[in-house]
């Protein structure tokens, strides 16, 4: 256990030393300035528009920054043969994986906290706490998925591309299902039916991130307990799935 914690500690330390938090802070500051510009453009509901813009862009920015951080950190670990060194020690493979996950997870929680504080001056309401908690869960899933992809692909480019595609699809799968199920489309055509089944099947395999970190919680109030209960359950289930897939791949890997 102490080895796992030591790996987690050094992973978190690496995040601090590579100025991850400063980068996140710079992104938050730039987006806050951009939101002021957007607020000036709005002719009605300017505060609402500003909050909506800042919340949506901050979420995307922190997902992007964390994904890149995890992928580049793991790529460096591969290039420096750090992973081989660690696994040659008396450390089981799951220990390495969980140590890394804990460290990256800690960095994700710090970044989620910073993003929530950045929104506090615009939306000081109970929905903010829910939004922040949901963002933390979303970032934990992104971090776990990026770690899995980085271990599997061992390169930044394919890992980040996969995570980006996965994230965009998981965020929009609800809307895609709505569009593909429209009654305006000729449902009797086999292509439409096949497409519908394909989309429905895909939605079973993806986390429904469209129900995570909704900007509406900040501007209109949240659904409260049911919303956070769904987010927590989905994070637990999908997080477990990703961790197990990562362990499966790590065991399988011939290092």
């Amino acid at each position: 256990m102490s080895k796992v914690l030591a790996i987690a500690q050094f992973t978190l330390l690496e995040a601090l030393r590579t100025r991850l938090l400063w980068l996140a802070l710079a992104a938050l500051g730039s987006l806050a300035l951009a939101s002021l510009f957007v607020q000036q453009l709005a002719i009605a509901e300017s505060a609402r528009v500003q909050t909506g813009f800042l919340a949506a862009t901050v979420r995307l920015a922190v997902v992007f920054v964390l994904c890149l951080h995890v992928a580049s950190s793991m790529a460096r670990e591969f290039n420096d043969k750090g992973i081989e060194l660690l696994l040659s020690l008396d450390l089981p493979r799951p220990g390495y994986f969980f140590g890394k996950l804990l460290g990256f997870g800690g960095a994700a929680l710090l970044v989620a906290g910073m993003a929530t504080v950045a929104l506090a001056w615009l939306a000081p309401n109970p929905g903010l706490a829910l939004w922040g908690a949901s963002l933390a869960c979303e970032l934990l899933l992104v971090v776990a998925l990026t770690l899995f992809c980085a271990l599997t692909f061992a390169q930044i480019m394919p890992a980040v591309s996969f995570v980006a595609a996965f994230y965009l699809l998981a965020r929009s799968i609800g809307a895609i299902r709505l569009i593909s199920g429209s009654e305006l489309l000729p449902q009797q055509e086999w292509t439409q039916r096949t497409l519908g089944w394909l989309v429905d099947g895909l939605s079973l395999l993806l986390p429904d991130l469209g129900r995570f970190t909704s900007t509406a919680w900040l501007v209109d109030g949240s659904d409260g307990l049911p919303a956070i209960a769904f987010v927590a359950a989905q994070t637990a289930i999908y997080g477990t799935l990703i961790v197990l897939a990562g362990l499966f791949d790590l065991y399988r890997k011939n290092l």
Binding site: G174, L205, Y238, L241
Partner: peptide, 23 residues
Amino acid sequence: VLWTLTGALVLQIAFAALQPPPR
């Protein structure tokens, strides 16, 4: 690990299937 992975996959599918369709 194999069995738990399969179990987690089944759990995810069941969880997603139990959710109301997007409306």
